[in-house]
Simulated scan of single mutants.
Amino acid sequence: MPYRRPLAVVLAAAVVGFSAWSGSLGAQDERGAAPPSVAAEAFLATLDDAELKTAVLDPADASRMDWHFIPKPTRKGLMLKEMDRSQQLAARKLLASLVSAAGYKRAEQVMTLESVVALLENDPVKRDPLKYYFTLFGRPNDAGEPWAASIEGHHLSLNFLVKGDEVIASTPLFFGANPATVPDSLKAGAVEGVEAGDRILSDPEDAGFDLLNSLTDAQRAVAHIDQQPPREIRSAGKGSWTVPPMGPEDGLRGVKMTPPQREKLKSIVEWHLAPLPDAERGEKLAAMKDAGGLRALRFAWLGATEPGIGHGYRVRGPSLLIEFVNSQPDSFGNPANHAHAVVHDPAGDFGDE
Rank of each mutant, 00 (worst) to 15 (best):
V16A: 06
V16R: 15
L89C: 04
D84T: 02
G251H: 00
S327Q: 02
E152I: 13
Y3S: 13
D142S: 13
A50K: 09
L215P: 04
G247I: 07
L276D: 14
V9P: 07
D330R: 00
P36N: 11
I268T: 01
V167N: 10
A347C: 07
T171A: 15
E166G: 02
L130G: 11
A336E: 02
K81F: 03
S37Q: 12
P275H: 04
R281Q: 06
G176R: 00
V243L: 12
D203V: 14
T181E: 15
A148C: 11
P36T: 07
L11S: 14
D61A: 03
A14I: 11
V243P: 01
D142I: 08
H224W: 15
P229H: 04
H338S: 02
D250S: 06
P140K: 00
Y313Q: 00
E82Q: 15
V182R: 05
E306G: 06
Y104F: 08
E114H: 08
T135H: 04
D352I: 07
Q227E: 13
A196G: 07
N178R: 12
W147Y: 15
A34W: 13
I225A: 08
L302F: 05
D226R: 02
E232M: 10
Y132Q: 11
E353V: 11
R253N: 02
R92W: 09
A45D: 08
R92G: 00
R75C: 02
L252R: 08
D49Y: 01
A8K: 10
N337R: 06
E323Y: 06
D58W: 07
A101N: 12
F18M: 11
S97T: 00
F175E: 02
D203Y: 13
D226I: 01
R75K: 13
A27V: 12
G144E: 09
P260H: 05
L252T: 10
A304C: 07
G32T: 15
A286H: 10
D142H: 13
A39W: 03
P229V: 07
A347T: 15
Q88G: 11
Q261A: 01
N213M: 12
H311Y: 03
V222Y: 07
V191T: 05
S202I: 13
D345P: 11
G138R: 05
P277M: 11
A347F: 06
A143L: 14
V191C: 02
D128A: 09
D128E: 11
V10A: 15
R316S: 02
P179I: 07
F299N: 03
G176F: 00
D210M: 05
S235N: 12
F43W: 12
R295W: 07
D58K: 14
D290S: 14
F69K: 04
W21A: 00
A12H: 14
R281V: 09
K289G: 04
M83S: 08
L136D: 01
F324R: 03
E270Q: 13
D198T: 03
W67Y: 14
V99Q: 11
A148L: 13
W271M: 10
A300K: 00
P129F: 11
P329K: 15
D48G: 05
R234L: 08
D184K: 14
P183V: 05
A274H: 10
S170W: 06
K264D: 05
M246V: 15
F324E: 00
L186M: 09
D206E: 15
L302D: 00
L158H: 01
L215M: 12
E353N: 07
G17F: 00
V222P: 01
S202C: 05
A20E: 14
M83F: 04
